[in-house]
Amino acid sequence: MLSLRSLLCKTPKSSPFLCAFSTQSSTDASAAPETLTTSRYDELINKAGRNGDFDAVQSLLEQRGKHGLFCTNYTFKFISRDISKLDDLLAALSRIDQRFARKSAHDCLVARLSKLRHLPHALRVAEIVVREGYGSNAVTFHPILNELTKMRKFKEAWRVVEAMKDLKVRPDLTAYNYILTGYCYVRDLSSAAGVLTNLENEKLGADTRTYDALVLGACRDGKPDAALRLLIRMEDEGISPLYSTHAHIIGSMVRLGFHAQALEFVMTCSGRDLKLDYENFGTLATKLIYRKRFEDAKVVVKEMKQRGIEMGEKLKEFYDMHAIDEHDAAAGKTE
């Protein structure tokens, strides 16, 4: 097996940065070569990027690809401080031989630029991925759509969808779900209905995220009864709801003053999934406390105690101060 030193310095692509690193790593001849982890690769790539050593960036990305290690949100952190390095970075990425590494690196760069809200740059990189044949799929465009819909820039999001189609990249269900969720959040239900029409016309169906968005829209529109009907429909179709789907309903009921109904809903859903019970009971108790419905909250935390559902630190403190009864207090003293 080749040593790390020979692997890094044998090729003409090697750089002073990589050679210095490999020399440092092999100072002790008796020591085993360093096993590079995902975080260690990120560290080295960012150091090389800050130093302007893009040959090193290229080689490190190729090597992590050979080890099957995806890029992460931290891989191109250095670009956050200096966007002027983008063209040099793109040139380095274009020279990567390994297909997996090249696609992963470009997708990661799109995500980083999107998070920084350099969205025109992100779209430019996504278009390069498609035009250069690095791997044309909708996943590359997801971070852009996610940020645009978070910013409520729906016209721009639709332009990205059209750009995908122009590039012969079919928008997938996840792409439409980002837009649907954004519309539901701002209670633009007529536009949300238009997204559903798109899903039907393109025969993309619906998944748990689609229903989560619709439940969110119903709840933000003050219609928890409609949200409950959607939840029942999910169960009928064998689609498991997200924890957030339940949280939308609980939050809506509490906001509308339906405290007893909220507890009934949580109790009805209980006993199937311990993690779900923790989320639902905890969400309900926390929201009741926030609205100073202390008597109702006491009922919820007592139920949690009786069922052996773990409480967070703040709920446990509330229970100890307000809900613990004399029997529990006496039992605590004898232990």
Results as ranks from 00 to 15, higher is better:
residue 213 A to T: 07
residue 215 V to L: 02
residue 218 A to M: 13
residue 221 D to E: 14
residue 221 D to H: 10
residue 223 K to G: 01
residue 223 K to Q: 15
residue 225 D to A: 13
residue 225 D to E: 15
residue 226 A to Y: 06
residue 228 L to N: 04
residue 232 I to W: 03
residue 233 R to L: 14
residue 236 D to G: 04
residue 236 D to E: 14
residue 238 G to F: 10
residue 241 P to V: 08
residue 242 L to N: 03
residue 243 Y to N: 03
residue 244 S to N: 01
residue 244 S to I: 13
residue 244 S to A: 04
residue 249 I to A: 00
residue 250 I to W: 01
residue 252 S to N: 06
residue 253 M to R: 02
residue 254 V to L: 08
residue 255 R to D: 14
residue 256 L to V: 06
residue 256 L to N: 10
residue 257 G to V: 10
residue 257 G to P: 09
residue 258 F to I: 01
residue 259 H to E: 12
residue 265 F to W: 07
residue 267 M to Y: 02
residue 268 T to M: 06
residue 270 S to Q: 02
residue 272 R to K: 14
residue 274 L to E: 10
residue 276 L to C: 04
residue 276 L to T: 07
residue 277 D to W: 03
residue 279 E to W: 10
residue 279 E to I: 15
residue 279 E to V: 15
residue 280 N to M: 15
residue 282 G to Q: 04
residue 284 L to V: 10
residue 285 A to C: 09
residue 285 A to G: 07
residue 288 L to R: 02
residue 288 L to Q: 07
residue 292 K to Q: 14
residue 293 R to W: 09
residue 294 F to K: 12
residue 295 E to I: 13
residue 295 E to H: 11
residue 295 E to C: 04
residue 297 A to D: 11
residue 301 V to Q: 04
residue 307 R to C: 04
residue 308 G to A: 09
residue 309 I to P: 00
residue 310 E to N: 05
residue 315 L to N: 08
residue 316 K to V: 11
residue 317 E to N: 10
residue 318 F to D: 12
residue 319 Y to P: 05
residue 321 M to A: 15
